[in-house]
Amino acid sequence: MPQISQFAESWYAASQIFWVLLTFGFVFFVIGRGMLPKIEATVDARDRKVADDLAAAKAAHAAADSLEESYRQQSDASRAAAQQAVTDAKDKAAKDAEKRLAKVDAELAGKLAAAEADVKAARTSAMAEIESVAAEAASDLVAKLSGVKVAAADAKAAVKAVLHG
């Protein structure tokens, strides 16, 4: 190769090799030994930080899931307690209404029995008066029509037989 042979023939090749080696050595020690470990340490620290942040995020996610589950359980328990309270209130209201209705029914039954007794008494009284009025009227009619005087007891018996019989 002509470039290499030409390179070897030139008088300043040794100084160029020296400076190339010196430059590469300087670059190797400054960058390779000085800067690269710092860069690698920074990259490692960043990787650790990212890994730690991911682990913290996973832990926070797990804690959030746990908290959400406990919230759901509390919500379900509260909902069940509210439903139970509503059911209990409905049952109590139904029982109270039933008691009041039974009390009102008893009062009405008493009033109805009293009213029926009053009606029966009034009816009996009215029937007795009707019988006596009818007996008097029959006795008067028979006396006016036939001129025969009918005994009050016979007139009452005849009226009673017709009305009840």
Rank of each mutant, 00 (worst) to 15 (best):
P2A: 14
P2K: 14
Q3P: 12
Q3G: 14
I4M: 04
S5A: 14
S5T: 14
F7C: 02
E9M: 08
E9H: 13
S10E: 13
S10K: 10
S10F: 13
Y12H: 08
A14N: 05
A14I: 07
S15W: 15
S15V: 15
S15A: 13
F18R: 03
W19F: 09
W19M: 01
W19D: 03
V20F: 11
L22T: 04
L22V: 06
T23G: 12
G25A: 01
F26G: 09
V27K: 02
F29G: 05
V30S: 11
G32S: 00
R33D: 07
G34K: 00
M35C: 08
L36Y: 08
K38N: 11
K38I: 10
I39Y: 07
I39C: 02
I39T: 04
I39D: 03
E40C: 03
E40M: 04
A41D: 15
D44F: 04
D44T: 11
A45W: 07
R46M: 12
R46Q: 12
V50R: 04
A51M: 01
D53R: 10
D53Y: 13
D53S: 06
L54T: 06
A55Y: 02
A60W: 06
H61N: 10
A63T: 07
A64I: 01
A64L: 06
D65E: 08
S66G: 08
S66R: 07
S66V: 05
L67A: 14
Y71K: 05
Y71R: 09
R72F: 01
Q73N: 07
Q74N: 07
Q74H: 07
Q74K: 07
Q74S: 09
Q74G: 06
S78C: 05
S78W: 11
S78P: 01
S78A: 15
R79T: 15
A81N: 09
A81I: 05
Q83H: 15
Q84C: 01
A85P: 03
A85Y: 10
V86H: 11
T87F: 09
A89T: 07
K90P: 02
A94H: 13
K95A: 13
K95G: 00
K95L: 11
D96R: 06
D96V: 08
D96P: 00
A97R: 08
K99F: 11
L101R: 13
A102E: 12
A102I: 07
K103R: 15
K103T: 15
V104K: 15
D105V: 12
E107Y: 09
K111M: 09
L112W: 14
L112D: 15
A117R: 08
K120V: 02
R123P: 00
T124P: 00
S125Q: 05
S125G: 13
A126V: 05
M127Y: 08
A128P: 00
I130H: 12
I130Q: 10
E131L: 11
E131P: 02
A135Q: 00
E136N: 11
A138C: 07
S139M: 14
L141K: 09
K144Y: 13
S146D: 08
V148T: 14
V148I: 11
K149L: 05
A151K: 03
A151Y: 04
A153L: 05
D154M: 01
D154G: 00
K156L: 04
K156Q: 07
A157F: 06
V159F: 02
K160G: 06
A161G: 02
L163Y: 05
H164A: 13
H164Y: 09
G165R: 00
